[in-house]
């Protein structure tokens, strides 16, 4: 119960901070998605098998609060989480520099894929146009891309540390419970 409340609180906190705080102070081109950073943190810390249901919930509540078609973020987050889990198992994520590089690639991938994935369900008829438009806009604006990556990396560090502490606390509590039984 405690773990459920803690994880659901993380989901709500991340989404509300994104919509009601971060997006209000950031400029339009800085695409920082805290939900994707949370997803990456959960996969790295606890793995796909343990966190997949929470990732589904994260996607569901994103759809609820972002007022989008229910299922679009669930689909994207699940596929993205699987992709991260797949890649991180085959590369050395535990090594400091390769791990760091991989996380930066994950962040960039997540931001870019997330920005085009929703348009697939939003307006299927002009998906090709949106894809070309977003690709040009995302990769040609170097200043914005660098800033987005730097701010995302800082946010990722904060979220990762926060989630790591909570997950360790949950693990400790669960172990204590098992011993007492």
């Amino acid at each position: 119960m405690k773990s459920f409340l803690l994880r659901i609180s993380i989901i709500f906190l991340i989404i509300l901070v994104q919509i009601n705080f971060l997006d209000l102070i950031l400029l339009e081109n800085n695409l920082i998605n805290l939900s994707i950073l949370t997803l990456i943190s959960w996969i790295i810390i606890s793995g796909f098998d343990k966190m997949w249901l929470w990732i589904v919930l994260l996607g569901f509540f994103n759809d609820i609060f972002l007022i989008e078609k229910i299922g679009s973020n669930v689909l994207f987050f699940t596929l993205f989480a699987y992709l991260i889990s797949f890649i991180s198992k085959r590369f050395m994520i535990e090594r400091r520099w390769s791990g760091f590089l991989l996380v930066v690639i994950f962040i960039l991938m997540g931001n870019f894929m997330g920005s085009i994935f929703n348009s697939l369900f939003f307006d299927l008829s002009s998906f090709k146009e949106i894809l070309i438009h977003n690709t040009i806009n995302y990769f040609t604006n170097w200043v914005s891309l660098v800033w987005t990556t730097i701010i995302s990396a800082i946010c990722f560090y904060i979220i990762y540390t926060f989630i790591n502490k909570i997950e360790k606390y949950i693990e400790r509590s669960e172990n204590r419970l098992k011993i007492s039984f």
Binding site: W52, K69, I70, G71, V74, L75, T78, S85
Partner: peptide, 21 residues
């Protein structure tokens, strides 16, 4: 298996997107 979970979630999510209740 992991892939089964992913397929199941994707199927349900796709159904919800197109059903759009």
């Amino acid at each position: 298996k992991k892939i089964f979970k992913v397929i199941m979630v994707c199927l349900i999510a796709t159904l919800l997107i197109f059903w759009n209740p």
